[in-house]
């Protein structure tokens, strides 16, 4: 079956509590004083009534201003957030790449961290172990395969994180502003690697503020404003409208 992602009438409500982290002590004191504790909140709909179909072959760039719900939508697609209303559905092996450089364990070596990251993405240990050398070579870290990651420089750790995340081809790739990182030489190399990965992947959905990236990689642009779908079409049409509305 061809991979796809389907968003059906999705809305997501964030509840912003005045008291974000209540504690038992306060609750008890309030209760003793005969007052109810401060449970006040404000509702905020980060995504509203969005329906989208991403069939195989989609290269989608989600654009919009800060706080328009782009990243939130991506996190709904990946299953990190359950939508308040509506449903999302996907078919195929999905990898989200959000903030490169998460959760390396400094005590573990590069090799061990690669295998660990693989397990988290849903890739078997055997498969990942086979790819370690390839990853380390691309990240220019061959000499540090068995060095604990805490001895890596920031740049080294970022190269490792990026390379590991982009090593395995999924059916569906979700990308959130992951085009930076590393020195200039590596950035170009990384962009090429990403381009190849995107070419191999059936469904790609990315968020970026950089319109040139969207134009380079995408065949479709989705414009979100205040969590609502404003335009959906070829980047050549949607981006100029978006840029015009910005000014």
């Amino acid at each position: 079956m061809e991979p796809y992602v389907k968003v059906d009438n999705v809305s997501l409500r964030f509840r912003l509590y005045r008291n974000r982290h209540p504690n038992i002590k306060e609750a008890v004191i309030h209760w003793l004083r005969g007052k109810s504790s401060d449970n006040g909140y404000q509702d905020f709909w980060a995504v509203r009534d969005v329906s989208l179909d991403f069939p195989a072959g989609s290269r989608v760039g989600i654009i919009g201003r800060n706080g328009a719900g782009k990243s939130t939508l991506l996190r709904i697609l990946s299953g990190i957030y359950q939508p308040t209303i509506g449903r999302v559905e996907h078919q195929g092996f999905l990898i989200p790449i959000f903030t490169v450089g998460f959760g390396f364990n400094g005590e573990l070596t590069g090799r061990e961290n690669i295998i660990q990251a693989g397990a988290i993405m849903g890739i078997t240990q055997k498969e990942m172990a086979r790819r370690v050398d390839h990853i380390m070579q691309f990240a220019e870290l061959e000499k540090f395969v068995d060095t604990p990651v805490k001895y890596y420089s920031t740049g080294m750790a970022m190269r490792l994180a990026f390379t590991t995340a982009t090593e395995v081809s999924p059916d569906i790739l979700l990308l959130d502003e992951v085009f930076g990182g590393g020195d200039v030489g590596f950035q170009e190399k990384a962009l090429n690697r990403l381009e190849k990965l995107i070419e191999r992947t059936k469904v790609v959905i990315m968020v970026s503020h950089d319109m040139s990236i969207i134009e380079r990689f995408c065949n479709r642009a989705v414009w979100l404003r205040d969590g609502q779908l404003t335009a959906d079409g070829p980047p050549g049409e949607v981006i100029p409208r978006y840029l015009a509305a910005m000014t």
């Binding site: 364990n105 005590e107 573990l108 061990e112 660990q116 849903g122 078997t124 240990q125």
Partner: peptide, 20 residues
């Protein structure tokens, strides 16, 4: 059940870090 590989890896990680 599908995530058992992740749990196993986490466990190995904890054991390694503690006893290495």
């Amino acid at each position: 059940f599908m995530a058992r590989g992740i749990v196993r890896n986490f466990l190995l990680e904890d054991i390694k870090v503690k006893y290495r």
